[in-house]
Design a protein around this nucleic acid. Sequence first.
DNA 1: CTAAAATATCTGCCAAAGCAGTAAATGCCG
DNA 2: CGGCATTTACTGCTTTGGCAGATATTTTAG
Lengths: 161, 161
Amino acid sequence: MSKQHYQVSTYKAQNSVGYLLKRAHSLMLDALETPLAERGFSFVQYVILSWLRDGIALNPKDFCSQFRHDSGALTRVIDQLAERGFVERMRGDRDRRKVDLKLTDAGRAAVESLIPLVVGKLNLALADFSSEEVSEFFRLLIKLNSTLQSALESTQAVAEA
Amino acid sequence: MSKQHYQVSTYKAQNSVGYLLKRAHSLMLDALETPLAERGFSFVQYVILSWLRDGIALNPKDFCSQFRHDSGALTRVIDQLAERGFVERMRGDRDRRKVDLKLTDAGRAAVESLIPLVVGKLNLALADFSSEEVSEFFRLLIKLNSTLQSALESTQAVAEA
DNA sequence: CTAAAATATCTGCCAAAGCAGTAAATGCCG
DNA sequence: CGGCATTTACTGCTTTGGCAGATATTTTAG
């Protein structure tokens, strides 16, 4: 039996993890979107380039599921990046349904030029954290994510049955 | 001099707090939006009702700044809720620019009926956490939020100068 | 007290996200 | 092998979010 941290009778939105996470995420976006826009990139565009650079997602499908982004919307964002010459689409040779995305030299240069900005903002966000606090924060975030991930997968399986 | 947790030369998106936060937030939304939609509410609609219930935001302005939601978009969401009879708009008597939002009886009943669902999902998310871990997680999230908050306010002041 | 600046909400317009359906490729199972 | 379901990417359509400007009210400065 797992611990019940919230109870219906006493629940207040102020104390919700969801509220805190939403707020943290929003503040992060606030800090990043304006400077990115000044350099000609939307946040989504930056994330695609950066995930390609670091090998998190190499095709649209991976990106959609990990970033929780609509597949149709993603197609159009990739169109924009391809038109500007930052990424190239290549049909996967092993599985021809898939599209392998590849950073062009220009794309790599673009994302590299944005990294200092992002690193600066991340350091700003964690400025008051000790190394131990950062480690613990990461551990807890990862724990939350994997719990939610498996919970979602099992309810999904139930829904299909 | 505050601690630099990230360095440009070694930065990888996998290790970004932003990445972890975005992911946590997305998974949370995944868990909530479908069941809410089945009961006829969008996530934003639920949050408005719930924040009204718990006194976090009582007028559109408060909601916009705390939820990072566009003021124009919010007007339309409130229109929807008002049409369905869940909230009422009343011009503020102290400041007639403001709109005081008020839950109707139907609105209160609606949000109360959704609380068990939300509490269930939050408990699911924190199922593997001890009480101490939850406390620490909250403390770190609040610390991150207040750091980001004040950082944003100061850069905003610089931009205006 | 008045003029100018600031604030809160709303409206119209445009861009982006979400949804449903399509097409091509693959995997599965008899 | 052959048919059927699944997966991946894409395309129209609708809904929503985001931005700029308009209006009404309040605050501030002189």
